[in-house]
Design a protein around this nucleic acid. Sequence first.
DNA 1: TCATAAATTAAACATTGTTTAAAAATTATA
DNA 2: TATAATTTTTAAACAATGTTTAATTTATGA
Lengths: 206, 206
Amino acid sequence: MSIEERKEREKLEMRQLIIKTAMKLFAAEGIENVSIRKIAEKIEYSPGALYSYFKDKGEIIHAIHEEGFEKLYALQRTLDGVENPKEKLFKMGRLYMKFAMENKDYYDLMFIAKGVGERICEKQEWDSGQRSYDYLRNTVKDCIEAGYLKESDIDAAAFAIWGFVHGMAALIIRGRCAMMPEEMINNVVEGSLKFIYSNINIEQRN
Amino acid sequence: MSIEERKEREKLEMRQLIIKTAMKLFAAEGIENVSIRKIAEKIEYSPGALYSYFKDKGEIIHAIHEEGFEKLYALQRTLDGVENPKEKLFKMGRLYMKFAMENKDYYDLMFIAKGVGERICEKQEWDSGQRSYDYLRNTVKDCIEAGYLKESDIDAAAFAIWGFVHGMAALIIRGRCAMMPEEMINNVVEGSLKFIYSNINIEQRN
DNA sequence: TCATAAATTAAACATTGTTTAAAAATTATA
DNA sequence: TATAATTTTTAAACAATGTTTAATTTATGA
């Protein structure tokens, strides 16, 4: 079946080309300024051709969205070797913010943009996100078990911490930080991370 | 100049009618499903007529956005009488989440939607938001001064706390909570609020 | 080589926000 | 009151969007 295999391969390559081109355009011109027609023009195909490879625009966006989760999870795994769970949690927060600030378009797609969340809920395609969430959740669990956090509902604690970092990222990315000068943002974020870190109870340990 | 006054009044009434109609449609059909044409049809005018009262669609959205801030600030002022700043801060968090959950469309417009943030930064129209932020900031300041929070950069602390609640709200509103069942969300949010509350240092006082 | 299947295209459709030139309504002037 | 000037409103058009369809080209199988 060499021929069918080749076709399959070509189909995958084409999908990859579309995704890659879309990502480039997203980064260059901003997500909302990229149309199907622009992607088609870039790869020198007609707009309609893309619909042989993706059901609709949402499916293209979703594919990119998945690549973003790969990136994020890879970053998280960087912390595998960190023994102290509280240190791990703090580093994860800083790493998360770094990812968000350096990949605003991806982050937007992954966690803010409309028309992506719905798809996540319908299908079981939250898997890639679940992996990252579980990584956070386990670290939070370790923190509680090690006495760094007061005994709490693990999910509530994990959601709180995720909310904290996501909130900052989302406010910045969607331009809701008019109360502080642009050039101060990074400092304030670092300060906020430290604020949470130093205000969390650690009296039990050492 | 009774005649000019009347014209001014009528212009204002028309603006109000447009805003009110747009709000109703937003609530009924969702923000992204409301077009200029739909609003125009509802008030029995032609689409083009709206452009005599608003520069563009963004200006309509921004007007609604301001009404949302009025609502939120009014809610915050409900806490004027709360003496203990930490209690005030906690109640403000719960109240903020309640507002977000019960006015998802407004909240989206105010703090998440694209095409609104830019307008905020350009003009000095962040005022209505600044008022709410200052209210939070002052409470945080009181908490620090009263020893409920470790001495920290006030803005970093305020941003952290705002980020925390906004993050939860934004994740829920934009459908990024697939890791928990729909009916659990309210419980988890309450749990997260309590988690932050009980894990913040208060050893200094009492 | 010819028939069948698949991929690609051009064109059209239904939307969208917005602009423009004409028509209608209103106000000012004589 | 009649006419001129202004302002509002409208219908129509424009450009751009995502998507569908029918036809055409291309590739495959017999």
